[in-house]
Amino acid sequence: MLRVNNISKTIEGSQVLDHVNITLEPGMIAGLVGRNGVGKSTLLRVIAGILDPDEGQVLFNDTDIHQDPLVKQKITYVPDSTEMLKSYSVKEIVKLYDAIYEDFDVVYFYSLLDRFKLPKNKKIRTYSKGMKALFLMILSFSTKSDLIILDEPTNGLDPIVKRNILQFIIEEVSERQLCVLISTHHLEEVEKMADVLIMIKEGRIDSTTSIEDAKSSFRKVQVVYKHSLPEKIAQLSNVNILNQTGRVYTLIIKGNIGVTLEKLNQENPLLLEELPMTLEDIFISSLGGESHVS
């Protein structure tokens, strides 16, 4: 459905995107995660056709969206800024989107407004920040697009609305086989709903894996040795220190798990136990949290 081929983008002399490749299929929810300023929003804006890539292509159903923007009838982009539609009333927006998108479903749109209890007869500017974000999402799903791009969609939403909207996204994807690409810092959301985790680091795709594969390729362990962490362990390139309190180390092992656990055991630890793995652990380990051992 969506193929991002070798996209590069330089802004003000610094390379923000460096030969990025992504492939997404229908029925897929992909979470794009990475630290601040690594190029997540730039990548989404290139995919949405707002920015031109210096190199590469964005293909939607084999059509280059920059060459033929009309293909974006089936793509909607929800930016992280909610201010752009603030001068509109709900009715005006409905008229506008109905005129833009051939498949815009007005009845469905109003039913979603009811479901999420958003007022219908107001200017968007009177909405709270969270309501605006929710409104934009409702609007995009009502276009019946096949690809929905969400940039930090749950910012400002309260936990109950957030849970409802995440549930709603999952329902939509399973019912209509659409594809959703979400950029977010809220890793627990990605963990709950995404099928694919795309990690971006310094403008490059660090990894693209399923959440399950990502979790199975990492292991989180707590170890205590008689003295400090043995030199042999410290030199391992696939081991990151997640946390250290005195002689108690929390380590993340990336790949080669069996062999690495064996090496940890060979150094006669006082304690070695596996801890439950979260996406946040993977994020910190892969994309740079605390110090790397080597």
């Binding site: 949405a48 707002i50 923007p69 293909v71 974006k72 930016p79 752009m84």
Partner: peptide
């Protein structure tokens, strides 16, 4: 100025 190009340029229209 108001970031509204993000909306306009993401729409299915030629520039």
């Amino acid at each position: 100025t108001a970031h509204a190009t993000d909306l306009t340029f993401s729409l299915p229209f030629k520039r």
